[in-house]
Amino acid sequence: MAQQMIDAVREAEQKAEQAERDAARRAEEILKQARSDAEKIVAEIAADAQREAQAALNTAQKQSEAETIKVQQSTKEEISALQAGARKKEKEAAARILKELVG
């Protein structure tokens, strides 16, 4: 009877040790899966952020290009106006010189 009791205690201890090992192994598997899931989530977040940053950059580039075209057009118009004014002044100056020479 004492031997049966000792065997029962040993068996219970062995089962408890096995249960601890199984629990530790399962905990490690859960941690490994959690790490893997976290890495995937971080990669997805990074990819989303990269896409958003690229979209923002593209928008900024388009706006910059549009603004550059606008400024170029405005500058061309201003140059044309200045050139027209200069031509008018040249004609006026030439007319004054002729008037003084003739007159």
Rank of each mutant, 00 (worst) to 15 (best):
A86W: 08
Q83M: 03
G103V: 05
Q3P: 00
T59Q: 10
K32G: 13
M1G: 02
E77T: 09
V71S: 10
A27Y: 03
E67P: 01
A66L: 09
E52G: 04
K89S: 12
T68F: 04
E39M: 02
E29P: 00
K62S: 10
A60P: 00
L101P: 02
A43R: 01
I97K: 03
E77D: 10
S80M: 04
T68K: 15
I6V: 05
K32D: 13
A55V: 07
G85R: 08
D7Y: 00
K62F: 06
K40Y: 10
E65R: 07
V71T: 10
L101A: 15
A27W: 01
E29K: 03
G103K: 02
I69D: 12
K70M: 15
K62L: 05
K32R: 12
A16M: 13
A43K: 01
V102M: 09
I79C: 14
I79H: 15
R25W: 02
M1N: 05
A43E: 02
S80D: 10
Q3T: 01
D7W: 03
A53P: 00
K32A: 12
D37V: 07
E67C: 05
K91C: 09
K76F: 09
A2I: 01
D48R: 03
T75L: 15
I69R: 08
Q61R: 11
E78Q: 10
Q63E: 13
K91I: 15
A16P: 01
Q18W: 14
Q83F: 02
A47R: 01
I79G: 15
A43D: 01
D7G: 07
V42L: 13
M5Q: 07
K91G: 10
E65K: 10
E11S: 04
E78L: 13
T68E: 11
R35H: 11
A95N: 15
A47I: 03
A16N: 13
A8K: 04
A43Y: 02
R25K: 13
R96K: 14
E52D: 14
Q50P: 02
E20M: 13
A43C: 01
A93T: 05
V9W: 06
T59H: 02
D22K: 06
L101W: 10
T75H: 14
K89F: 00
R96D: 04
D37G: 05
A2C: 03
N58W: 04
G85E: 15
V71R: 09
D48E: 07
A84I: 08
Q3F: 00
A24R: 04
N58V: 08
K15F: 04
L82C: 05
R26L: 11
A43M: 06
K91R: 14
E77M: 05
A81N: 07
I30G: 07
A55W: 05
A19Y: 07
M5G: 00
A60L: 03
A94L: 13
A43S: 03
A2H: 09
K88Y: 02
E77W: 03
E13R: 13
E67R: 10
Q3E: 08
T59E: 13
K32S: 14
K70H: 14
I45L: 07
E100G: 01
I79T: 15
A16W: 08
E39A: 06
K89C: 06
E100W: 01
T68L: 12
A93V: 04
L101M: 14
A84S: 14
A47Y: 11
A24H: 02
A93P: 00
A23H: 13
Q33W: 03
E39D: 06
R51S: 09
A49L: 14
A38T: 09
A55Q: 15
